[in-house]
Computed example of a mutant assay.
Amino acid sequence: MEKIVSKEFESYREAIKANLPSHSRDFECVDLYFDPSGGEYGNGDLRLVDSGNLDEPIYSTSSGHGIKRSDIDKYHAKTFARIMFLDRVSKALTHDDVASYFARIIRLAHNDVRIHQKPDRIEIIYHSLQLMARSSIFTVSPDLMKFVVIKDHVNFEDVKVSIFERTVTYYSKNSDAHVVNRGGVVGALFYGPAFSHSTKLYVAAFGASINSIVTIVDLLSDEDKSIAFRLSRRLLDIPLSKGKAYEDVLNELLAFIFSNCYEEVEMHVQVPNEERLRVRDIVIDNRDPENNFLNLLKDNGVHYLLMDAKNYKGLLRVRDVDTFIGYIGENKKFGGFGIILSRKGASKTLKKQLVKKLAQGIEIVVLDEADVLDMIDLRALDRDPMSVIKDKLKQLHFQQ
């Protein structure tokens, strides 16, 4: 078993380091080792090794067909580079990052979710409903479920675990016990849409810009990119202040994001009023939604979702939304609700103004670029993208 240099693997490593300069050392100590007569079949053993520790490789592979030194660049370099990246993600994630990530996923399926902070752990508690047949009738029995994140400074072996905790799942970063650990995170993120659409988690791990993360994911993903990822890439590539290009991409993005919210998305763009003096950027028919949050909006009088696109270089100011507020007041079918899609988000002054508007029955949610990318990821993973709007609206209400 000897250390080898793969030209392709090194090109991936250099690209990752260029996009994550403050973490370059983390990637420099990872290397490839190869034994042409090693492995389960005795015809090739390729390992991804951290700091020369051959006994505990990050990843290793062998094949019944054999692994040749000349095959590594073509067939293995990208896979090993992706695993190296994800291993460093799992290493950089704190227990708070992991708890936030799983709490968010659990909240998409369960309403009653509580989080308890304890000295050695973070407990995410929720209920799973089961139908139980008793005396020829069905009753609902709520099962208490827990996802427990053991804090990074605590050894899982020191944690007291009851044999009766059948509905408890534990995460412990570096444990070798039968729990979710760093390796489990790498495995969960490696395949399919999970790798391409967990960008928010990668941003949390490295504190990097979304552009840098998407560049890395683009490089390490399979060549056949998903529609969702291509849309994300197009959004990030649009220069600021290019209004028409931004609106065109948003039309495609919104059709994708809302595609599991209606039987058919009925979206209208550049909609004028009767006098043709005002033109609304985007209107989505919300009279027959198949999404709980959108149903709630409809019950509150939001029959049509009014949206405005702002590709400004800076934060939105109060005067930038005056016209949009006028649009909302023109038509009762908008239900006093509107969404502004702004690359840079809202200024502090505008945020305060939007809180004041609540007293007038006007609710405006401002989604920045990160919010839109988050919604794309959620839709790509078949989760609920409307949870982003729901959370932003809740934050707005709590400030009143």
Rank of each mutant, 00 (worst) to 15 (best):
L316A: 05
D299G: 10
L296S: 07
N311Q: 03
V321P: 05
G301Q: 11
L305Q: 00
R317H: 06
G314R: 11
E290S: 06
R287N: 11
N291T: 12
K313L: 07
L296V: 10
F324A: 02
R287V: 08
N292R: 02
N300M: 03
E330D: 11
L294K: 02
D308W: 01
N295M: 14
L296H: 10
L297I: 07
N331S: 14
R317N: 11
N291Q: 12
N291I: 09
L306W: 04
Y304N: 06
L294H: 07
L294G: 03
K310V: 00
D299V: 07
G314T: 05
N286Y: 10
L315D: 13
I282P: 05
R317V: 00
K298G: 00
E290T: 01
G329A: 09
F324V: 03
A309K: 00
N295H: 10
V302C: 15
D299L: 07
F293D: 09
D308F: 00
F293I: 11
Y312G: 01
L297P: 13
D322F: 09
R319S: 15
L294S: 06
E330T: 12
K332P: 13
F334C: 03
L315Y: 08
L297C: 07
D288V: 10
N295K: 08
K313V: 05
K310P: 00
G301C: 14
F334Y: 15
A309S: 04
T323K: 07
G329Q: 08
R317F: 02
G301F: 15
L315F: 02
V318S: 12
I282G: 02
V318Y: 08
F334A: 00
I328T: 08
L315G: 01
D322K: 05
T323W: 05
N300R: 10
K310A: 00
N291W: 09
N311D: 07
L316K: 03
V318M: 09
H303A: 04
L306P: 03
A309C: 04
V321Q: 04
Y327C: 05
D288N: 07
T323I: 04
D320Q: 08
D322Q: 03
D285F: 13
N291L: 15
L297W: 14
G314S: 05
R317P: 02
Y304T: 04
G301V: 10
L296E: 11
N311G: 00
Y327D: 12
A309W: 01
G301E: 15
K333G: 04
Y304C: 08
T323M: 11
L305V: 11
Y312I: 01
G301D: 08
P289C: 04
N286Q: 14
D299T: 02
L306E: 03
M307L: 13
G301L: 14
L297T: 05
L315A: 06
I328N: 07
L305S: 05
N311S: 00
F324P: 09
L316H: 06
D322H: 06
N291H: 06
N300I: 01
R319W: 15
E330Q: 10
F293L: 12
L306H: 02
R317C: 01
N295D: 14
P289S: 12
V321Y: 05
P289Q: 12
